[in-house]
Amino acid sequence: MTTPANFPRFGPLRRRIPIHGDPSLIAGHSPWSTGLYYFVLLAAMGVDLVTFHQVLLPALDETEEMLWVVVTGFTVICIAMSHTFGQQAKKAVSTRHAAGSRTTAWVNLLAWVALGAAAFAFRWEYSSLDIGSAFVVDGVEQTGMSDAALHEQHLAAWLFLALYVGTGVVSGGAGFLRHQPEVSRYNRALSLRTKAAAKHSRLDSNLQGSTKLAATVDKARLEHTQAWESLQVRCIAAADRVKREIQLKLLDKNTGQDTELPPAAPRPDVPPRSPGNPESPDEEDELR
C-alpha cells in the first residue's frame, strides 16, 4: 500500500486519504505461508490448553472429561477473542465502511484481558491459600505454605500470564496482519459468480435443447399434416392406375363394336380431407 505524500498524515483527515492497494493480493498467500499461519495458531491453542488445564484442575470438582470440555471451551474462546480483536483492529485502522469494527475490537480485547486477569488472580490466590502443608508447632496447628512454595506458585502464575499474553499477541497479530477484507470479499464474489455462471450455463443448455426440440416437434407436426395430404394424392393416383387398367380391359372386350366407352367417370365419393389440403379439383382431374 502506498499513500500520496501531499496528504496530511495526522489529524481528522488522516483516515480520508486515498489508499491505492495492490490487486495482486487476490492471488493470496503461498500454501507454505498459510500452513505456517495455521501451525502458529494451533501451537498457541495448545499452549493455552495446557495453561488453562493447570488453572482449572484445582478449581473444578468435575470428572476428567468435563474438565477437558471446559478447558477446550476456554481455549477456543480466548483464541477467538484475540484473533477477532486483531481482525477488527485491522478493519478499524486500514479500511472504510467497516461500521462497528472498532467497538468489536475493544470489546474483544477487554473480554480477553478480563479472562486472563481472572485466571491469573485465581491461580495466584488459590494456589497460595489451598495448596500447602499443615504441621503442628508446639501443639498449635499451623496452616500455610512455606515461603519457597509460595514463591514457586507465584512464579507459576506469572508464567501462566506470560504464556497467555504471548499466545494472545500471536493470535491477534496473525489476525491483524493477515486479514484482507477486500481480498476475501473479492474471492467470495468470484466464487459465487463462478457457481452462478455454471448454473446459468446448465440452464442455457437446457433452454437451447428444449427450444430445438420444440422446433423439431413442430416440424414433425407439419410433416404429419403434409403426409396426410400426399397420402390422399397417392391414393387418387393408385386408384386411377387401377381404373385405367379396367378401362383397357373393357376396351379390349368392346373391340369391334361401334360404341365407344365413356371416359372415366368422376369418383362418386370424395375421400375425407384435412382442412389444409392444397390439392385443387383441377389438379385431381389432371392426374385422372
Binding site: I19, G21, V183, R193, H200
Partner: peptide, 18 residues
C-alpha cells in the same frame, strides 16, 4: 449473474482503491 459480475468488478475496484 449480472449482479455477481458487478460484485466482482466492484470488489476488484475496492481492492485496488479502498
Amino acid at each position: 449473474l449480472d449482479d455477481l459480475e458487478a460484485a466482482v468488478s466492484h470488489a476488484l475496484e475496492r481492492l485496488s482503491d479502498p
